[in-house]
């Protein structure tokens, strides 16, 4: 680990401890809920960022995979008595498999066509969720009854909103560690070579197909986990939360936040959920947030490829080298 990475890891751990321990004491119930959502979407954004940063691939369909993870979690919630944490992991794992399956035919593509394929998938998923809806405790495979929804379980130790926020934050910390482990070991090196040149990577004996699929699976796992956590946070899921437009927004904000570090995913989550909530609280229109997002995306694309996180980290680096 290079020193900068080490500092950033320690900053991360300190930040996690701070948010888990201190924040719930000082913030009102509203902001706990908002930050829970922001953390959940930071988890999903880290998946989008991973695939974009490591392989240069644009994924506009992450929102669809979040929905898939949420669907699986709800289905299992009503059908089984499994512990919630296990249920979240299963939802993440299955979504990872589904993500990899979808990626299989898309592996030959990159650039614009891959982005278009994912956009088509996001649009498909939107209609799919609308047609079949999310399980609400009904009978049958789809589990949808034309009635009010039954309760969604939370872990026994995370029943209150505050406890659930801590639970989500710890899940986020674990996920970042998982990504960090990948980046600093064999998959990370393989991805770097694939990014440079697929032919060279193959010549060097790297199983290109496997490692590309592995990136998609990991990203899908993160999306699925976040969907499952979202189901627990909201107590139900609604097809209207999983529109293709949201997938576009999530990708845009991942880029704005910065795709190369965990900090970028957090910035993306905060922009996606905290900023509109602040605007709403101040009585400002959510449309203003949309304009800011659009301008920030164009700015990031044109002049700040490392995003807001890159700029923050850059400031740290400067400070560090001055010592």
């Amino acid at each position: 680990m290079d020193p900068l990475q080490k500092t950033s890891t320690w900053i991360g751990v300190a930040l996690l401890a701070l948010t888990v321990l201190i924040l719930p004491m000082v913030l009102g119930a509203l902001w706990i809920k908002v930050l829970t959502s922001a953390a959940i979407f930071a988890l999903a954004a880290s998946g989008v960022a991973l695939v974009y940063a490591q392989l240069g691939l644009i994924n506009l369909a992450q929102i669809a995979l979040i929905g898939v993870g949420g669907w699986i979690a709800l289905r299992l919630n009503y059908a089984t008595d499994l512990p919630v944490t296990l249920l979240v992991i299963i939802a993440g794992g299955l979504t990872g498999v589904i993500g990899a399956l979808f990626a299989l035919p898309a592996l030959r593509m990159r650039g614009l066509y891959l982005a278009l394929v994912t956009l088509m998938v996001a649009a498909l998923a939107q209609i799919f969720f609308n047609a079949f809806q999310f399980p609400n405790g009904g009978e049958g495979f789809w589990g949808v009854a034309q009635k009010s929804a039954d309760a969604v379980r939370r872990p026994g130790f995370a029943q209150s909103d505050t406890a659930y926020f801590r639970y989500v934050m710890i899940a986020l910390g674990v996920a970042f560690m998982l990504i960090g482990l990948h980046k600093s070991s064999a998959p990370g090196r393989a991805w770097a070579m694939i990014r440079q040149s697929e032919a060279n990577a193959m010549a060097a004996g790297i199983n290109v197909t496997f490692f590309k699929l592995w990136a998609f699976a990991l990203s899908g796992f993160l999306a699925g986990t976040s969907g499952a956590l979202l189901a627990g946070a909201l107590g139900q899921l609604d097809a209207r939360s999983f529109l293709a437009g949201e997938g576009i927004l999530l990708f845009a904000l991942a880029v704005v936040g910065g795709v190369f570090s965990w900090l970028g995913a957090i910035v993306a989550g905060l922009l996606y959920k905290l900023l509109p909530a602040i605007f709403n609280d101040l009585g400002l229109s959510a449309d203003i947030a949309m304009i800011i997002f659009g301008a920030a995306l164009m700015h990031a694309i044109m002049t700040a490829p490392e995003g807001i996180a890159g700029q923050i980290m850059g400031a740290f680096k400067k400070g560090g080298s001055d010592d």
Partner: peptide, 21 residues
């Protein structure tokens, strides 16, 4: 008065604000 903007997440947030905060 709060507006949920047809968004389930926001609906949960504003209700929490009114009822709890």
């Amino acid at each position: 008065v709060e507006n949920d903007q047809w968004n389930p997440e926001l609906a949960g947030q504003v209700a929490t604000k009114l009822v709890k905060d």
